[in-house]
Design a protein around this nucleic acid. Sequence first.
RNA 1: GGCGACGUGGCCGAGUGGCUAGGCAAGGGUCUGCAAAACCCUGUACGCGGGUUCGAAUCCCGCCGUCGCCUCCA
Length: 461
Amino acid sequence: MQIYNTLERAVVPFVPNDPERVTVYLCGPTVQSEPHLGHGRSAVAFDVLWRYLEWIGYSVVFVRNVTDVDDKIILRANESGQTTAEVASAAFDAFTRGYDKLGNWRPTLEPRATENIDEMIAMIEKLIDRGVAYESDGDVYFSVRSFEGYGKLSRHDLDDLRTGDRVEPGAQKHDALDFALWKAAKPGEPQWESPWGAGRPGWHIECSAMAVRYLGDGFDIHGGGTDLIFPHHENEIAQSEAASGTTFARYWMHNGMLNLLGEKMSKSTGHFITLLESLEEWDPMAVRLFYLRTHYRKPLDFSRSALDDAESSLGRLRAFRRRTSPALGPKAEVGVLEEFRAHMDNDLDVAGALSVIFEAVRAANAKLDAGEDADDLVAAVNETLAVLGLDIDDRTVDDVDISDLAADLGVPASSVDGLVAARNTARDDRDFELADAIRDGLAALHITIEDTADGTRWHRD
RNA sequence: GGCGACGUGGCCGAGUGGCUAGGCAAGGGUCUGCAAAACCCUGUACGCGGGUUCGAAUCCCGCCGUCGCCUCCA
């Protein structure tokens, strides 16, 4: 398999440290408020990476952190009169609900920053011992210029960074480029005891400490959004490698941003569409498909029509499922699997992989129309869709109240099935007026009827 | 100002030198009482200008345009 390594700015062969086991660390959210659609994209992109790695035979340890202490959470807590823990917990639940609905696997581990303070303090102490960090008025800063490789991920030259106008100089810093490892406590803020007095950790140190704690130095893949490349990931590398003297992460993968009206969705500017609302408005699997149709590294534009389009496209797959068996697996058509794999091996060309699936669907439909056996193709479609995490099985249908409809039509039926049976009786009697009235009535309740050679089916649209 | 992406048919979007991606929408057809679903057919695109090559959407140069990062951010 080949993946694009941001560190090298190139698609390169992926060779994990351990030939059987892959370690992945993904930067998770700051749990300050509800997730937006962009968070879902990142989670899905790396969920597919995970599923694919498992499919080609690796066992994966997948860690995604939870940032549950930071300025914004504190701000929100103060505004709402809640504790920071309450704010974080509520937001975390919303993230989990969204991620689950999208069909993502839950991470192997989901460590929280506040549960790893000791590890962070230990790493900071090591950095001070090595002379690359310094304490100043209860704060601790990392001395950026002391780390030779600084800028190797983001390709920034230290002297090109516009330190004057955008980076806060900060009186306690020796150099405007230095960043905080530890912040002295302010009244009313969450705080922990440390060798430098009460305080809380800086943002970057948590990922370094947790990644190394759970995966060890030199783990395989570190992921996140492109917006994290600088400064977050650059700083993670600096502090981790300065502390350990060895490689922090071997491959860096970054997903592209989700844009709204041509601009990046961003929580802080209020320029976003929330994930949970979108998952109400559209089939969650359509949202997933919407993400998947664009390569994970490219910017993706949100639009209602794009989601509608994805939903129609998904409808094709759901219709396919209705006429086939979800159970087939072992005898999948090898040609389809190989083509699928060739695309996925190429830095997760999911869009290309989807084209293989859709071609297989068309071929299988043609065979079924001709009365031929299509089990191999169906099995291949089932298997590959599962690798992409696209669940096209019938959604559970809530009880639909059809009593009013039955009464209006004068049909003695108490269920959808009863109405469908009544319609078929009407059709046998060539009473198409009644038959169509039943169908139209059900359509108004979002129930679509399909008459097939094997009888009449219905489903929720 | 620095660094970096990207510009593909009505729309969305693959494509890492030669072999009609795929999806959605549209038109025509087959099937069906009519639908739904499905299948078949139709649409010849690659920002602009140069160059390399037998051959470029794919490589090189220039230009135009859009976006991202340089500040919290998936």
